[in-house]
Each structure stands twice: as structure tokens, then as C-alpha cells.
Design a protein around this nucleic acid. Sequence first.
DNA 1: GGTTAATCCGACCGTTTGGTCTGTACAAAG
DNA 2: CTTTGTACAGACCAAACGGTCGGATTAACC
Lengths: 198, 198
Amino acid sequence: MATMHRMQTAGLELFYANGYYATSVDDILKKLSLSKGAFYYHFASKEDFFIQIIQNLLARKIYSVLIEPIEGHDNPLEQIVDCFEEALETAVHNDMDFGCVLNNFLTEFRGKDQKIMKHLCDIFSIWEVNLVSTLQKGKFNGYVDRHVDCEAAATYLISSYFGVRTLMVGTTPSARKYRFMSQLRVYLKSLEPRKVVA
Amino acid sequence: MATMHRMQTAGLELFYANGYYATSVDDILKKLSLSKGAFYYHFASKEDFFIQIIQNLLARKIYSVLIEPIEGHDNPLEQIVDCFEEALETAVHNDMDFGCVLNNFLTEFRGKDQKIMKHLCDIFSIWEVNLVSTLQKGKFNGYVDRHVDCEAAATYLISSYFGVRTLMVGTTPSARKYRFMSQLRVYLKSLEPRKVVA
DNA sequence: GGTTAATCCGACCGTTTGGTCTGTACAAAG
DNA sequence: CTTTGTACAGACCAAACGGTCGGATTAACC
């Protein structure tokens, strides 16, 4: 694997684990047994390094994990349950959950680094827009009730997903996952089409 | 106001705005035109300073804003709507929302400072326990359906509340608040007692 | 063999960090 | 007037930070 790619992979891991500001360039280099020269040969600055990680790694992962599995199928509500279920399962095993990564970075850079914030918001926006249109398509296909406000539903779904990751820090994350999923199903049930009253 | 109290107030503001690690002791002292001597006369360390802020300011505010307004009333579902509505309104005006503060710190210290994490989890736990017991009381009083899993509902409610604060960073926070509240009502509606089928 | 460009090393720099320590202004007590 | 303890000032420190720079290594090409 090329050095540049190794740096990005290790960088994302450490930034996710410790935060951007709390992770020094030396930390990353120490993990890979590399030197300052190697880093600043490939990247202009720490900020530039981070932005490349976002665009090369995070954006693609968000798409493949949170967008692609949902869009393109018939019943969006079922796909959402499966997708969240899978994402939270990786969270239970403490593997890197890219939805959580995005959430962490969004909170860390709020009101600080505008440039980085722009890139993060772009990624988030893509996810949101896709979720909304998928719900609207589900409405068209009869899987979502026609009275549902799809934009509001997307906001609520993403909110709950982002938030539950914060709750899964403490003890018994799998219990919290189970509780969350049960109520997610309750909420999604209310989006289903009303039975036609004969 | 005593110097010690002024430091804590200013400290919380800056920690909330910039994060714990990204805020230096000098930043706080500069804001109050004080010196290092004053700080380390009152506090043993930056960590000790932060813990005192958590216990003296954050814990009390969480109670008065998120716990007290919900408990003790008849219908918990109505109180939850009002309470979240009010909390998110302060968020729209960019004032300090203490639920958001707790969320930010929980994500910032995850897996880093165990000692601080313990204190934050304690505060969170109090909120969660209160919300669960309030829902259970609501079930007893006939405002919540008897089939509802109160622990799961509390988890879901807190998740969505924590998460929506992340979404309100970008543009049009008030629009996101409106969408969130509409779906919160949809969800809470599904917790109401089923009409007895005659 | 000599030249060139790519890749990486590691000493070094200025600044900032959390924290220490000596000193001092001052009010209350003797 | 002297003593004593409180409440702060600010110079100072070692460590860590992001970033620079001259040089070493290596392989490819003429």
C-alpha cells in the first residue's frame, strides 16, 4: 500500500478515536514509523491532510454504508431498518462506524474551522437528500403514507441515528441498540400507509 | 460575583464553544483579564476545574431544564413536547443549550478521559432514569399505552434530541427544528393509549 | 557513469501548552 | 505598628505542537 494511503487510513483511525485537535501529526507518524519529511512531502498541512481523508475515505464510506443500501429498493422503510441495524451492530463491536465518524466531526468543528465544516456539511447533505428522495419514491410506490412529510421524516431518522451513537458510549451498548431499534420500528410503522377504511 | 464563580461561567462558555482540548487556560484568563496565579490558586488543574464546572453548573442546569419541567405533571407526553420545544428554541437563537453541552462533552471525551467521562455519564444517567420513571408514571395514570417499553422510549427520545442538535449546525436551523418537532409528535402519538375498540 | 526526480529522514524553529513559583497588595487581627 | 492569611500578578519552565529545510537514499533514464 502506498505511503500516502497508509497515512490517510491511520489518520482517520486516530482522528476518530481521539479527535482532530487532540491528535498530533507526530502521533500518526509514530504509528507508521514515518518521519515529518514523509508527511509534509505528501500533504501541505494538517488541515489539507484531513480534508483529503474526508473526501477520499469518509465520503465514499458514507455512500456505500448509508446511502447505497437504502436507495434503489422498493420498500424504503425496510431498507432503513436493515441499514441502521447493520450500522449499529458495527458500533456495538466498537468497529469504526462511519455515520458516527461524521457525527463526531460535525460536533467537533462546529463554529471553528469553516473550511472543514463546509466539506463535512456537503457529505451530510448528500446523505440527507438521498434519504428524502428515497422516502418520496417509497411514497410514490405505496410503501409510505401519502400524508408523510418526507423531509421531516428524514430529519427525524438522521437525528435519532446520530444521537443513539452518543448513548452507546457507556455500558451495555447492545441493550441500547435493541431498545433503539424497537422504537425505530414503532416510528416507521406510523409512516406506513393507512389501511383503507372500507 | 466571586472570581471563582466568574471563572467557571466563562470556562463553560469557552469549553462549549471551542471544546475542552481546544480551549487553553490562558484563553479563559484572557477573557477575564486574570493571571495564571489566580487560576491555580482556586483550582488544582485544568481537569479539576472542568469537573467542578460539570458538577456546579452543568448538572444543575440539566436538572432545571430537562428533568424538572417533565416530572411531576400528569401527562408526560405533553411535557416532553413542551420541554424539547423550548430547549430547541434556545438552540435556534444560538444560546447555550445544556442538552447540547452534555452531548458535545460526551462525544469529545469518549474513550479518552475516563475520570471526566464518569462524571458526564452520571449526569446523563440521572436524566435517563427520571425520564423512564416519568413515562412509567404516565403509563400508570393512563396517558401512555400499557404496551409501551418505557426504557426503549426514553432511549429513543434522548437519541433523537441529542442527534437533532448536530443537524442544527448548518443553515436553516429553525426549519430543522420544525421538522423534528412534527415527527416527534408523530412518534409520541404512537405511545398514546389505544382507543378501546367497542 | 552522470543526471534527475521521487521519496523519505530527522534536526531544527517559533509558538503554545499546562503547570510552578516567587512576590506583592491588602484587609483583618493582635 | 506588626503579623498573618487571602487573593492575585506574572516571570518562568519543560514538553508538545505544526511546520521548515537541507540532505540522504534510490531507481530510472540518457
